[in-house]
Structures are given as C-alpha cells and as structure tokens.
Design a protein around this nucleic acid. Structure first.
Lengths: 345, 345
DNA sequence: CTGTTAGCGCCTTCAA
DNA sequence: TTGAAGGCGCTAACAG
C-alpha cells in the first residue's frame, strides 16, 4: 500500500503533480525554494515512489533477472559456489540502482512454463544473468536471439545481446598441472565434469595442452568423468585408480569432486599427499577445511558476480561490453599436494 | 519490450480491449467462439501481459520479497544452509503464481538505505521472507509494525502481520543430548552460537533441560560460545577442552562449528569418536562427508522454505496462518558419536 | 520556473 | 455477451 502519492504531496505543497515529480527526480528546472518545500513534505510523508507506475511510462523496470539453473540437490543455490557470485551481482546492481528478481527455471520436462525470455518480458526485466546453463539447454536458441542483454556464467553464447563471464580455465588448469609436474609427478589423472558444462571442455583442453607443454604423455585411461559432485568424484576416482594404480596425482575439475577423491583415497588406504596429490578447482569454503586442506584454483566468485552486473548494466545503457570476460583463477597451494614418494617410480 | 498488448490482439480479433482482457483472464462472460479466437491470436502473437500495468490497477504486484541478511563471507547466500530453503520458498511461490525479488540488505552502518519495508513499498511487494535476522537488528520495530505479512526464519516477532518458521530446537537438542547420554556420556559440552541469534537461546534451553531431565549436572565451564563458523567453533572448542579435558562429548549448535570441533580434536590428538563424540546441527551436505561423518540434527530446509511461502501467500490472501510453525529436526546418527572409552571414568 | 495535457497497458464498473 | 469510459500513479512533451 504505497499510501502517499505525488498527488498528496502536490496538494499539501500547493503545486502541481508535475512539479513534485520534477523536484523529486532532481530536475534543475524548479525553484530552489519550492523544491525544498516539496522535498521536506515528501520526507515527512515518507513518500515512496510507485515503481510500477514509473515502469509503465518509462518502459524501464529497473529490474535484472537472475536464473539459477540446475536446482537439484547440491546444484544451483545450494551449490557452495553460487553464494558469493550472487552477493557480488546483487551488490553491484544495487550500486547502479537496480533490483533483482529471481526466477524459477527448472529444466524440462517439468516446465510447460515459458522460456526464460517470456518470464522477463512479463516483468519488463531489462537484462538477465544466467548461472548453471548447459550446452543442452532447450532454450539456448531463444537466448542467442534475445532482445535484452544476457550475461551467462561460464558459457559463451553467440548472440548480439549475449555476454559471458568466467574464469580462464585453460590457463588455470595449466598452472595446476605445472604445479604437480614441478613437484615431480608424471602420471597425473583428471577427474572432469560432464561434457554438457562448457567448462569441462575447457578444463580438459587445459589439461591436455599442459601435458603436452610439459612433455608428459596423455593417457585416456586416467581420464575420468563425473558430475561435479563429491559422491560422483569419489566413484570416478575409485574406478580410475583401480585401473591405473600408478597414478600419483589427480586434478579434479571442482573442489567437490576433489573432496570425493580425498574420500576415495582414504578408502583405498592411500595417504594424501604422501601417496597421492590432489588439486581441486573453485576454492570453496570447505576446501580449506578438509584434511589435508585442499590445493585448489581460486575462483574470484564475488568479482565474477560484480563483473556480470557491470556488463549487464553497461549493455542496458547502450554500451557494448566485451562479449566475454575471463578472470584469473589463482593456484592456492595447500596440504594436499607434495612430491611423490621415491618408491613409486 | 512487451511488444504485443491487449490492444493489438483486440484489433486483430475485431473486438474491444475489454473483451480480450476478459477472455484472457478466464472470465465466464464471454462467447465461447470469441474467446477461442482471442486465445488463438494471443498465442500466435506470443502475448505476455505487462505486469507493471496490471500491478498499477490491481494494487497487487504478485511479488514476494526475500531478504537474506548477514551477507559476510559464509553468511547469507553463502551459507550452506540457505540454498535449499530458498529453493523450497521459490518453488512454492511459483506454484501460487508469485515471483520473488531479492533485496540487498546489509546491516548498518553501510546502510543509509531505507528500511526493509520501504524497499517493499516501492515495488508493492506483497509479503516478505527474512532469513538471518538477529535480535539486535535496528529495524526490528519496523518489522513488527509492518503492514504487509512477514515471515521470519528462526526468529519469532510479536506483530500482527509477522509469522515465523523454524525447527523445534528445544526438542531437537534434547534428542541429541539423550543420544549422547544413552551412549554413556556424562560430561557433555555445548558449543553454542552467539546470543543475537534466537536459536542459540533455544538450543541452550534444550541443552539445559535435557541435562536436567537426564539427571546430569550442568557445568558452565563446559559451555562455549562461537559465531556459527567452523573457525570459530574450533577456537571455542580448543579453549574449552583445555579447560575441561574430561569432556567426552560435544554438542555444537551448527554443523559448521561441529566441523571446527572435529578439526580442533584432530589438532589435540583426540580421536573421534573414540576419545570424543561430536554432534552437530543442520545436516548440511558437508556433514555426511567429513571424517568421521557427522552425527547431526537434520533440518528439513526445503520444507522450511515451502512452509514460509505457504504462510506468506495465505496471509496475503487474508487467511491467518499460525504465528509460528516449528518443524521437526531429526537426529541422524553417523560415525562421530560412540560410547566413551572405559578408561575415562 | 511552473502547470496543463496525454498517455503507458491494464482492469473494472456501468451501460447497451 | 460485449463495448465505452474512467482511472491506477507516474513521466514527458508542450505551453505559458
């Protein structure tokens, strides 16, 4: 119930509604004295503009949409990764005077619901940020054809109005593999995520190119694939290590999977880092707390969110941000990596 | 750009705007034949109603607000707890046709920004869900006087329009302490959260009453207080255990703190559960993955969110939900609890 | 500098 | 069963 309206103020101040509107929006063409009076009365009545009305006439809602896809247990909001990204996004938006609306966007088939874009149209959302988008999303083509700016996380799209943020996976993984190689490891396995995540492809790319740069052989037998979860990572690791017990180091494409690897190692009686070195990706809170603490690649989550917001607001104001921004993920060396034991080749 | 409007459809169908409006909102007073035609055209033009316009006239936005307070690292969105609560809230809202807006709401002093309620007024938000509210929040009085329904998580407020959801901490903690006592523990410490969280009070209540029911003495020296984080929990535990080395079991008011206790025990060379039993609260994902896996009280997070949404929509529709709904937190016994060693008394 | 006039797109009486 | 008229609260021309 936005009780007080411009009209109320206008009457009380003995001026027209327009005058009030102008005074409140800080236009210069209004008498110092009248403006003061108006402002005071507005304050007094605790006036809050009715944004729906404003939106109707300006055709701008001041709202950005957030879609957190993949909402199964441990995905989406529940993912330890999302929180800080959202915080960064939200803070930066607030800075620019935008509010944020979050939309439910389950994947089909439980969606006879409209595509992302329809949801935005209804609310006149000006731009959208999508997290957790996969290459097999059925609405991908809607997105590339979008009329409003879209920023995706970790998933570049080829559209005029689409932009993406993420970390430079290739060079990050490169650093991780080099770190292991520097320690003396030569049999380095990768526990990667599923292929529908475009980061998986990039990280695999980084893995292969690093091996090649370092003169290490690539062995498909020590490439494992999981679903980014701890349980999945553990399983994938176990069947890999049973196949190739001479592996001395594992790079996992996410901390959650790396934690699963740690668990699997424990189950096989392998000590970390003495018998096995493990590197993760993300630097989620939990990574510093495992035993041993996890060596990992730190994704600047808050900054990723901020960057997304900045690109979105820029695009909404007619500017043209770069279509893809990659931040750097730094290697954080902790206790889960060390030199391989001499005894093992 | 909500291109197509009622007018467009009206023209194309050769009827009035009113007719279209009625057909689309499913009113009965419209010819079967005309309605069909209108619906078809609307579909064809991919019509999406302009909700700002609708809001303006109906005075209902169809938006619920979400405030996730306490946005420091590890708090708010980043807290492993929040995700599923939000998912449940969002899903249930969508069920009832509501959208959700998330507001930035840092604590003072970085807020010259308006109170929660002002933010809602501007957007004509119909109801709000607040997570992470503390007893020392400066806007508490605004909330209790709110004109729109408010549901708080874990923090009952005495207002006409305020409701709260949460778990029954007292009985949950009771179960935890009984579990430990049943195993044979007699020196059971508590690592509690800070007093500004009302759950801390309740859990302390549960702890004391359980001890008394079980005929165990209450000893202030083995009551520790931390900040709900792992690091804090570890610190609090360490100084407590050094003071009272004969403690054989610890109940922590959050899993994060319990994990910290595990870490602290490791540091002191105490084996869990042989030398020390540990029980947490929350059953966050991570709890099942520690070593040993944590015995804890499972909070039904998704259901908490759902319940909050239901109460909110009910209250918005003029119904009167109970002012407080408490769900049950069930004890999940895992590897971190066992009988105390005989050697220790 | 200020007021008047006109809608933004939709819903809701009231008539026909 | 349908249409015409009015207005939700605000901003954006255009006058004065």
């Amino acid at each position: 119930m936005s009780r007080t309206t411009l009209k109320d103020i206008a009457e009380k101040a003995g001026v027209s509604v327009t005058a009030v509107s102008r005074a409140l929006s800080g236009y210069p063409d209004i008498g110092e004295e009248t403006r003061g009076r108006i402002l005071r009365i507005a304050e007094e009545l605790n006036y809050q503009p009715n944004i729906a009305a404003r939106t109707l006439v300006t055709q701008k809602s001041g709202v950005m949409g957030l879609f957190v896809l993949g909402r199964a247990k441990g995905e989406g909001f529940s993912h330890p990764f999302s929180g800080q990204v959202i915080n960064g996004f939200l803070d930066e938006l607030a800075e620019d005077g935008y509010d944020m609306m979050v939309f439910k966007a389950n994947r089909p088939p439980d969606s006879d619901n409209s595509s992302y874009m329809d949801l935005c149209r209804r609310r006149m959302v000006e731009g959208a940020f999508l997290m957790g988008l996969r290459t097999d999303d059925p609405w991908l083509s809607d997105l590339t054809a979008s009329a409003i700016p879209i920023v995706t996380m970790d998933m570049p799209l080829a559209g005029d109005m689409t932009f993406s943020v993420g970390c430079d996976s290739v060079s990050a993984v490169h650093a991780a593999i080099r770190h292991l190689a520097d320690l003396g490891h030569r049999k380095i396995s990768i526990v990667n995520g599923y292929k529908e995540a475009s980061v998986s492809l990039e990280r695999f790319e980084g893995y292969k190119s690093a091996l090649s740069d370092l003169g290490l052989p690539f062995d498909p037998a020590i490439v494992a694939e999981a679903d980014f979860t701890a349980a999945g990572g553990k399983q994938a690791f176990l069947s890999m290590i049973d196949r190739a017990p001479d592996v001395t180091a594992v790079f996992a494409s996410s901390d959650l999977m790396a934690l699963g690897v740690l668990e699997g190692a424990r189950e096989r009686g392998l000590r970390v880092p003495e018998d096995l070195s493990v590197v993760g990706f993300d630097n989620i809170e939990m990574a510093a707390m495992s035993s041993p603490p996890l060596t990992t690649l730190d994704q600047p989550r808050y900054e990723l969110g901020q960057t997304a917001a900045r690109m979105l607001t820029a695009a909404c104001n007619g500017e043209t941000p770069p279509s893809r921004v990659l931040l750097k993920a730094n290697l954080i060396a902790r206790g889960s990596t060390a030199e391989p034991r001499k005894s093992k080749t």
